[in-house]
């Protein structure tokens, strides 16, 4: 049987139980440890205090993007958030990500989020087959550098949960999908450019972004989706003025 590690003082942890329609916060006392992450806290609750708690995680090291939750009001990767950093007063509030339907407790339904990636033409389509030689893209080219700036996104949904425009307009594609579109707009091999510009323009697309910057501020990968969205605005506006959209 697993033993509870030695405790120092307890953390008071309010955890969301329920779904989007019904639920409330339940308080748990969790022993405090050195170098403890918020994910450690949630895992402790599930293993030792309430095995019915639902949450999602996989890698525990900031690679998979599945453990994002709202921690003391801000969307964060729980695996890379140190308790010492966010709960100086010994209080933690852990809720599911905003702007996504809650399946149960801390697990959200991400399907709508990823459907928007597809709607923003987030798929790569190249002209070559496996029988052709590799395409050459100069590493220092303007397009390659622009794509590099956004390519490290792992789809955790933190930007999407932090975006007020997504809250106000449920059909807005959101920062992650638009960032993905921007990396592909800058992929010189891709063959769906006109369709993509059309998909990301309009009042569900890049033009409704207010450049408020919560996405860029909260992104754990330090990506600035606002920069990509500004690029999409410029390209689509130029295309619209020429009647090409």
């Amino acid at each position: 049987m697993a033993t509870v590690p030695e405790m120092k003082t307890d953390l008071a942890v309010n955890v969301w139980r329920g779904n989007s329609e019904r639920g409330g916060f339940t308080t748990f006392a969790v022993p405090r440890h050195d170098s403890q992450t918020v994910l450690d806290v949630v895992t402790h609750i599930q293993r030792y205090l309430d095995p019915t708690l639902s949450y999602r995680y996989a890698c525990r090291v900031g690679m998979c993007g599945s453990c994002a939750m709202t921690v003391n009001g801000k969307a964060r990767w729980t695996c890379r958030t140190s308790v010492a950093k966010v709960a100086a007063d010994g209080q933690l509030e852990i809720a599911p990500l905003d702007n996504l339907p809650v399946i149960k407790d801390l697990a959200t339904d991400m399907s709508g989020f990823f459907d928007k990636w597809a709607r923003a033409k987030g798929q790569f389509k190249g002209p070559l087959t496996r029988h052709d030689d590799f395409a050459q893209v100069a590493p220092a080219s303007k397009e390659r550098l622009a794509a590099n700036a956004g390519i490290e996104c792992i789809g955790c949904g933190i930007c999407y949960a932090s975006c007020d425009v997504v809250t106000w307009r449920a059909d807005f594609l959101g920062p992650a999908a638009l960032n993905r579109a921007w990396t592909l707009v800058n992929d010189v091999r891709d063959t769906q450019q006109p369709e993509r510009l059309n998909a990301v323009a309009g009042d569900a697309g890049c033009h409704v972004c207010h450049t408020q910057g919560s996405c860029a501020e909260r992104c754990p990968k330090q990506i600035a989706p606002t920069a990509g969205i500004a690029g999409l605005k410029r390209l689509t506006a130029r295309a619209a003025m020429r009647g090409e959209l």
């Binding site: 059309n198 323009a201 309009g202 009042d203 697309g205 033009h207 409704v208 605005k233 689509t236 506006a237 295309a239 619209a240 003025m241 009647g243 959209l245």
Partner: peptide
């Protein structure tokens, strides 16, 4: 289309 209108308005 709405996309063109929105882009032009922007």
């Amino acid at each position: 289309t709405s996309a063109i209108t929105q882009a032009r308005l922007w």
